[in-house]
Nucleic acid binder design. Structure first.
Lengths: 199, 199
DNA sequence: CGTCTATTTGAATGTACTCAAAAGCGGTGG
DNA sequence: CCACCGCTTTTGAGTACATTCAAATAGACG
């Protein structure tokens, strides 16, 4: 390893789920690769098979979908300590429907499909780690789905701001609209309404 | 086992994901329990900790959420070979936000939290099985979220009918409306519009 | 058969969208 | 350092999708 601390963030992430020996960590690191991207780099396009799960060491990405009307819908934004991937495409090695791109200069730690399989074979507790990870994502998605069906856009926006204040600072507003499933114009109107309320 | 074939459906389900020995299956079965419920039985209420994952051997259930306005939103309907649970509540042993109830007389195969942990310990490939299971659910949820943001209610209804024809037959229409995130009145209007179209 | 619940229909309303145009903001080059 | 360009955000008018409320009809079950 050129820089002994480059994996410190991902190691800390792992350590919250499972216990690994020094040797396990060394093997884990041997299966990873690190890469830097400029702002607005495309990491995945719909139609490609997603070849990686990427841990954001530094930077910001968005994962989005292009619907039949040509509108982008943002699935989520990732900052430090988030993973970006299309799990469906990656795990089944089939073409993706999603796009992933960087919103800032970004340093990613990659794990490939083959490396992940090797990891599962050599260190079975990674099965558990990734299961817990997917479970958490699942819970988040479910809550989002429920709030979409239960709350008007204004409340969903407030909940988003409240839950992801760091992301609101870093992501342009029209992308947040695309995440909330509303038009940028409408989000702007919501914001101006909220502003006049709080005065 | 009183009835040697009672687990045949769940065994077939498992076999699609992982390979198990006869002994493994025997142990697996020893960790399960089977229970029959009448129509409209409540299996879980919001506020309770979800103590089980339930595999539907026979019957039909719904998993739903009660929002702040007192409206029910259906997360999904389960028929034979589906699992019903609140994974977030179950896996973290914290109070649920969901309700689960039967829509027909239903036979469920239960696995408790402790039994599942024992299973993971004794047969680690179950970690993999449940990871794959959550991954599939994750993919389904994601598609649903995207379609909610991309398609009007009419198309979502058609997609639902197309994807789950068996469920449409068995679940009352106002619950399908609650799944689609629309009012029963509006679903009725969509249907009558579709009917006049296809004549 | 009667009761209870589910579905349909209609009118009025509201939330969010489309389209168009103006204003703001950030970066880049002269 | 300012001017300009492109992109983001705001604002407004008209429209569409979906809701609410109310009432009528149809179905299911004891």
């Amino acid at each position: 390893m050129s820089n002994p601390s480059i994996f410190s963030s991902i190691d800390a992430y792992i350590a919250r789920c499972i216990m690994l020996s020094e040797a396990d960590y060394a093997y884990f690191h041997s299966q990873l690769s690190v890469k830097n991207y400029k702002k607005k780099s495309r990491l995945l396009s719909a139609g490609e098979v997603c070849t990686f799960e990427g841990f954001i060491n530094k930077g910001c990405c968005r994962v989005y979908y292009l619907n039949a009307n040509g509108n982008e819908v943002d699935l989520y934004f990732g900052i430090e300590e988030w993973w970006v991937s299309d799990l469906a495409s990656f795990s089944q090695q089939k073409p993706s429907n999603l796009f992933i791109e960087t919103l800032e200069d970004t340093e990613l730690i990659f794990i490939s499909y083959e490396a992940k399989e090797r990891l599962f074979k050599k260190i079975p507790s990674f099965d558990r780690m990734f299961r817990l990870m997917v479970q958490r994502t699942h819970e988040t998605l479910m809550k989002r789905l429920l709030s979409t069906y239960s709350e008007p856009a204004e409340e969903r926006y407030l909940a988003f701001v409240n839950r992801y204040p760091a992301i609101v600072q870093r992501v342009p507003q029209h992308l947040i609209a695309a995440y909330l499933g509303i038009t940028p114009e409408f989000l702007s109107k919501i914001r101006s309404k909220l502003k006049s309320k709080n005065k």
